[in-house]
């Protein structure tokens, strides 16, 4: 789970499966967007960070998976196309975007500490003494706040709704007062801006997208094929049950020739493998009614067909 505060929302709760993502990313590049895109998918969460239109970071994290770069982009695309994903776009300041980037690629020193159980003063003293570059992440299920540190000194605060590092602690510290608030301590290595490359330039994003679209189409085709096969299998089993029931009933009422008539008439109306739909069965009963009267009287035939229909209702229910 990637925990980041919401910046200034640009777009929220979009379905990324309905967006041609490479084109959207190019628009953000052209618009010199600074901020991040968050993809919450069924498998995990993906983050794409932009600074001045350059995609400087791509991360995808799931339960036992953490991938970056082209692999992360491919995952994000695949999960978006799979459906059930949500895309949120937040605008940030240049510094905050860089901090978020550094934070995502840093190390976790402590995770999920219950705030009421730890000595916060001692922890802050240790950060100061060890001149930590990093951040304290305070969070509950609903809200998140980040407190950035450089060389052990507080640099500023970032919380839901802010676009830049703020100097006032009110909102951020209010998270700490919420019931069940937890704390992560993350250290980050300083990233020189010159070292960052634009992933949109270095990675063939359009190619990855097309490959994922093809994979998705192939998966869909396979799934449809599997569904069809499974449906045919179910229909085959149902047909066998129906034929067994009808034959057994016919044999009981009008003898072995009755079972033969059932097979013959079924083959006439539905062929050897077609699913036995209600209209086909109705047609079958009409035909059987005529054929069976060559060896039995109307009362006997009506009784037989009535029992057949009753048995079929039981088969449907099972």
């Amino acid at each position: 789970m990637i925990l980041l505060p919401k910046g200034n929302p640009v777009k929220e709760n979009l379905d990324p499966g309905k967006v041609i993502l490479p084109e959207a990313l190019i628009k953000l590049q052209v618009g010199r967007f600074t901020g991040y895109l968050r993809f919450d998918t069924q498998e995990g969460a993906g983050i794409l960070i932009f600074r001045q239109g350059q995609m400087i970071s791509a991360l995808f994290e799931a339960a036992a998976l953490r991938v970056v770069g082209d692999e992360a982009i491919a995952r994000i695309f695949a999960q978006s196309l799979a459906g059930g994903a949500l895309l949120n776009i937040y605008r940030l300041s240049h510094d905050l975007a860089m901090s978020i980037h550094a934070l995502l690629h840093g190390h976790v020193l402590y995770r999920g500490q219950e705030l009421k159980l730890i000595d916060i003063k001692a922890l802050l003293g240790r950060c100061r003494d060890e001149r930590i570059n990093g951040c304290l992440r305070l969070y509950t299920d609903e809200r998140i706040a980040l407190i950035f540190y450089r060389d052990g000194s507080p640099l500023g605060f970032f919380h839901d709704g802010s676009t830049d590092i703020e100097t006032t602690a009110d909102t951020s510290m209010s998270v700490a007062r919420l019931p069940g608030a937890k704390l992560d301590v993350l250290t980050m290595e300083g990233t020189e801006e010159g070292e960052l490359s634009d992933l949109l330039e270095s990675i063939e994003v359009k190619g990855i997208w097309e490959r994922e679209v093809e994979n998705r189409a192939a998966q869909k085709k396979n799934r449809q094929h599997e569904d069809k096969r499974s449906r045919q299998e179910q229909e085959k089993v149902y047909r066998e049950k129906v034929v067994a029931h009808l034959s057994e009933t016919a044999e009981r009422h009008i003898g072995k020739i009755g079972a033969s008539l059932v097979e013959k008439e079924l083959e006439k109306v539905a062929g050897p493998v077609a699913p036995l739909t209600p209209p086909l069965l109705m047609q079958f009963f009409e035909q059987l009614n005529k054929a069976a009267r060559l060896v039995a009287g109307p009362a006997k035939v009506t009784e037989m067909i009535g029992e057949m229909k009753k048995g079929l209702r039981g088969l449907k229910g099972s």
């Binding site: 003898g255 020739i257 060896v295």
Partner: peptide
């Protein structure tokens, strides 16, 4: 023989 156990047999 063919319709042996039917009602008409």
């Amino acid at each position: 023989f063919n319709v042996k156990d039917s009602p008409i047999s």
